[in-house]
Design a protein around this nucleic acid. Structure first.
Lengths: 333, 333
DNA sequence: CTGAAAGCGCTTACAG
DNA sequence: CTGAAAGCGCTTACAG
């Protein structure tokens, strides 16, 4: 099955006229004071000539460590993937670790074993938006959870989504909004449950506050329909709080279809602050989640775990970014 | 460094009171007719009890194959990543292969060795939007290029971007447009060079056709500025052809800032048909690129290569999707 | 039906 | 300064 048999360190040794140990020492950078510079040069040249690259499987087996970490993200959070990955890679690189990603395929339910697909040799796992139950699959593998319930058993780095929701409600309340519609994300993930809970509590605490809710798949058309349902009820909301920026794009569409101007006749908020938020018109008031920080801090925690320490769970605060999609509640509505 | 020493097949053998060979046979599913059902059950139970999972490094070393493929994508194409990955995984799974992803970190120039970071044991590489020069780094590793120059030395699965551009120009020409502005993507990648070349040729072939061009980073603000530059020249274009859907979002913003209605006063087209295309208002006329097919066909080609055959390069056609952002050229302008 | 042995390609004490 | 040998944990002929 291997296309062409690659040269081994034995081949390099033969080519350079030295022993395998010397090759390993030289190529591993541990030769100074142990191998003569002339021999080292010879080895390097031989390796170069043969196009030698060490067999990682053999290396891993011998060393018992792969210095590779698996980052697992659900397909749904794809727009988020980039920055999280970047942050994780940056932090890992500082410690000589590599990162590979595994995105749960669309058709794999959460019940599927995370180890069914990646035939990986890894030292640890960074698992994003994963249910605690799935965590059980990891058994011995050190794991840190990302954007998950901080109350779980594994060390977790989460976003302060509840604070974010409270900031949104405070902002809307200050603009005079009382009737709020929640365009809720359908996936049953901790982050969305936490958002829903915080929103409900915050609106309830508002004098005269009234919350309605419609659920949507994370997709524009579904969000548009959910928003339309909310807006066509009697006593419709004057503000739509969406669980996600993409959902907010759907809310914009519903508003336009009903002839409602954003923000003068309807306020809309998103969550996450992905690229889309500033591509929309008007630009979206949303909560910025530090995605890259999530990846970096998650990796830091995982590396602590790998070196035998127990990292503390952390919560990264979001920040309300006020743009053009929110305005004073119209007394008329 | 390994957190806890995992049980080995030797441990399972001891626990079950059999030899290591029997454990391997049973757990590898090759026991029927060679091991008694009773013994097999005992082994399974012992493995379960100890929480045994085979050491992939040892397995890979022995087998000489990892049945894992690396998918490399540049950060820039992140919105595309999802579907390409999904397609690749789907196809790989049918052959018992896994896929891990490697996204080139933002700060890594194209000159960086693709093997610097992923400490991977892989059988092959699926490299998206990579320059042929970088390919040299792969040496012995079987590789298939995605969305790259089909004229390169490696087998390639590419999009028919030139045909896509021609379809856009034909559509605009039929609507009476002659003065076309190109909002060009700045990254020096084959796919964008091919788009620019095809667009220039098609507009030139148009009686009275005139092309102007401004370059932008793949980012809304940069695209808005580039579009504004085009629209404020004397004899401005009546249609803006953007290299990418995100760039089109920037063009929308420039149009709005200048008080130009889309599509009645300015037509705008995108490319790729990512989620954003239907989130925008009006929805974007664009060329749909079959991203999931790209991943699937690329994987098919790579698996052919791994089994010793030389796959032929393929081109996947794009399809013009006419939505609300294009309309008749206004005689006045 | 079951086990003892070899070997994949590395790295690292250990001996010289 | 350099080499011979052991061993990481598997799988697979081979022998019984």
């Amino acid at each position: 099955m291997p296309a062409t048999s690659r040269p081994t360190s034995k081949d390099v040794a033969h080519e350079a006229g030295v022993s395998q140990s010397t090759v390993s020492l030289v190529l591993g950078g541990k030769w100074s004071g142990r191998v003569s510079p002339a021999t080292a040069r010879t080895v390097h040249e031989a390796a170069e000539r043969l196009g030698y690259r060490p067999n990682p499987a053999a290396r891993n087996l011998r060393l018992g460590t792969t210095r590779t970490v698996l980052l697992m993200v659900p397909t749904l959070t794809a727009p988020f993937f980039g920055p999280v990955y970047t942050g994780a890679v940056r932090e890992a690189a500082r410690h000589g670790f590599g990162v590979v990603a595994y995105v749960w395929p669309d058709d794999a339910g959460p019940a599927d074993s995370p180890f069914a697909a990646p035939h990986e040799a890894i030292d640890g796992v960074l698992a994003s938006s994963m249910e605690p139950a799935t965590l059980a699959e990891f058994r011995g593998t050190p794991a840190v959870m990302l954007d998950s319930d901080p109350a779980g058993t594994a060390p977790t780095v989460a976003f302060g989504v509840a604070d974010g929701m409270r900031a949104i409600v405070a902002h809307l309340a200050a603009l005079g909004h009382r009737r709020v519609g929640h365009v809720a994300a359908a996936p049953d993930q901790w982050t969305f449950r936490a958002r829903a809970r915080a929103l409900a509590a915050a609106v309830e605490a508002l004098p005269g506050g009234a919350l309605t809710r419609a659920t949507a798949a994370i997709e524009v058309g579904s969000a548009r329909d959910a928003a339309a349902r909310l807006l066509t009820r009697p006593d419709p909301p004057t503000a739509l709080v969406c669980d996600d920026d993409l959902l907010a794009a759907g809310a914009y569409k519903a508003a336009r279809a009903l002839g409602l101007d954003v923000p003068s006749e309807l306020s809309v908020t998103g969550f996450d602050d992905v690229l889309l938020a500033t591509a929309l018109e008007p630009e979206l008031t949303t909560v910025r989640l530090p995605a890259e920080e999530l990846g970096a801090q998650g990796m830091t925690a995982l590396l602590e775990l790998l070196s035998g320490h127990r990292p503390v769970s952390r919560v990264l605060p979001g920040r309300l970014v006020v743009r053009g999609s929110t305005g004073p509640a119209r007394p008329g509505r």
